[in-house]
Design a protein around this nucleic acid. Structure first.
Length: 455
DNA sequence: TCTGGGGTCCTAGGACCC
DNA sequence: TCTGGGGTCCTAGGACCC
């Protein structure tokens, strides 16, 4: 919690529906549902007109059809249009502060202190109104609700309080009064399961939750969640605004129109999903060590199965092969409604895979064949990792897991460090050849320069 | 013919290592 | 012939968010 109300949360109102109404004037003032329009679809966004009939996000579209009158528009999402609108808005926010955290396509936190703004109540009110006006103007009428407060929690709850097209400023000292009367379900992290457990304990408001001691909360919800609720209920929140986050996983999944049992069909679906995932990994300059499949059975029970390799990959064929192997262990005879392929254990480097494109289907009992890595031929076998800290190029480092390394770039934060070492060590491996020599800073370590000099 | 798709974080147990 | 404790990695599942 900060001394002044210097954190803003900006939330675009029913964004998908608002963009549709902007682009198709005939939809303005009418109920609009954006989401899956086919049999098993759900509502992504309901316009405020549609909410009056009870339509809500995450509701099955079939349910929304029952509730909304004829004349309601049911639209498939046009993500490209939403992304474009989002980019316009985020660019505006970046003009206000260097510290902007985009939470999703339609939401962001802005650290106004980092933007050098007048943090008096009158000052932040003026900035917030400026944000709202410039968003509406730049997007052609998509409105935003803004909350400003001393923490992310208060800013976020504030932006929700007077939606749509609303503004809430919670001055320092006003946090408790704002939170106490609200239902616990307004707290981020309180979903159906947590709300139900609290309800059974007779706790309905944030004020009541703030009366509960820490031990019972940890008992009910575990260490992290319990302690988190304890603090949030007291408006004790010092989470910083984080501008860049690295992706932790990349996945794709599909719910089928009808449950599938056919193994061959499931196999081809795996290939489609793996191709999507591999393409997105490559587009992001990422590769992954763990491949996970997700299966939702006909009765909605959901399982995952995963496997981890020593080396990361971004190759769709290999991802598909590993996923197919996992699928082979699962009984699908009763029908499955959803299949997913996911990757995690991401490394920010796309390496040449020393062991080729695919793995042998039968365990051979022999070591995997492949070129013997060597630092004495014309290329050095190196690993790249992003290492936190403050570094200068050329510096030698010792890493407890990866061994001796050498800093490739300089700077603060996450800097690329190259390591030599046994090829069985985890991490992306890449053949580092003479063409890279031109990129090297002065005085590379001996193990790099000797490997790069022509024999 | 209720229940998408893309994510994040946490927990718990077992393997393994020192 | 009894049996430590801490740390890391991996797997599986669950809650939650937009």
């Amino acid at each position: 919690m900060r001394q002044e109300a210097s954190l803003a949360h900006v939330d675009l109102d029913a964004m998908f529906a608002a963009v549709e109404q902007r682009d198709k004037p005939s939809l303005r003032g009418k109920p609009v549902i954006v989401g899956g329009v086919a049999g098993r679809g759900v509502v992504a966004t309901a316009s405020y007109e549609a909410r009056r009939f009870g339509a809500r996000s995450a509701m099955p579209t079939s349910e929304a059809r029952r509730r909304c009158p004829s004349g309601t528009a049911f639209l498939t999402p046009r993500f490209a249009a939403y992304r474009k609108t989002s980019e316009v808005v985020m660019a505006l926010l970046h003009e206000l502060s260097p510290l902007v955290e985009q939470v999703s396509i339609d939401e962001a936190y802005i650290d106004l202190a980092a933007g050098g703004h007048d943090l008096s109540p009158a000052g932040v009110t003026a900035v917030a109104e400026q944000i709202r006006a410039s968003i509406a103007a730049a997007t052609g009428g998509v409105t935003a609700s803004v909350g400003v407060g001393t923490s992310k929690l208060v800013a976020k709850i504030g932006s929700d309080l007077h939606k749509p097209d609303g503004l809430t400023i919670a001055a320092a000292g006003d946090e408790q009064a704002l939170l106490q009367p609200l239902p616990v379900t307004r707290l981020p992290g309180v979903g159906p399961a947590t709300a139900e457990r609290l309800r059974r304990a007779g706790i309905h408001t944030i004020g009541a939750l703030a009366q509960v001691e820490l031990p019972p909360l940890i008992d009910w919800f575990g260490q992290a969640h319990g302690a988190g609720l304890y603090r949030l209920a007291r408006a004790d929140d010092d989470r910083p605004v984080v501008s860049e986050r690295e992706a932790k996983s990349v996945s794709a999944e599909e719910t089928f129109a009808v449950d599938l049992t056919d193994r061959a069909r499931l196999g081809t679906e795996i290939d489609v999903l793996a191709t999507k995932v591999g393409g997105r990994l490559r587009a992001g300059g990422l590769s992954a060590r763990t491949v996970t499949i997700k299966i939702r059975h006909h009765d909605f029970t959901t399982i995952t199965r995963s496997t981890t390799r020593p080396q990361p990959t971004d190759q769709p064929r290999l991802i598909a092969q590993l996923a197919r192997r996992l699928l082979a262990e699962v009984d699908t005879s009763a029908g499955i409604r959803l299949l997913g392929v996911g990757t995690s254990g991401l490394e920010t480097f796309v390496q040449d895979d020393l062991f080729g494109d695919t793995e042998p289907d039968q365990p051979s009992g022999q070591p995997a064949p492949g070129p013997a890595p060597s630092t004495t031929d014309q290329s050095a076998v190196v690993r790249e990792h992003h290492v936190p800290g403050s570094w200068r190029a050329g510096q030698d480092v010792q890493h407890d897991r990866y061994g001796p390394g050498w800093v490739w770039g300089s700077g603060r934060g996450l800097v690329t460090v190259r390591f030599e070492g046994p090829t069985t060590a985890p991490g992306p491996i890449r053949t580092f050849d003479a063409a890279d020599a031109a990129l090297l800073p002065a005085d590379p370590p001996e193990w790099v320069s000797s490997a790069l000099s022509p024999t």
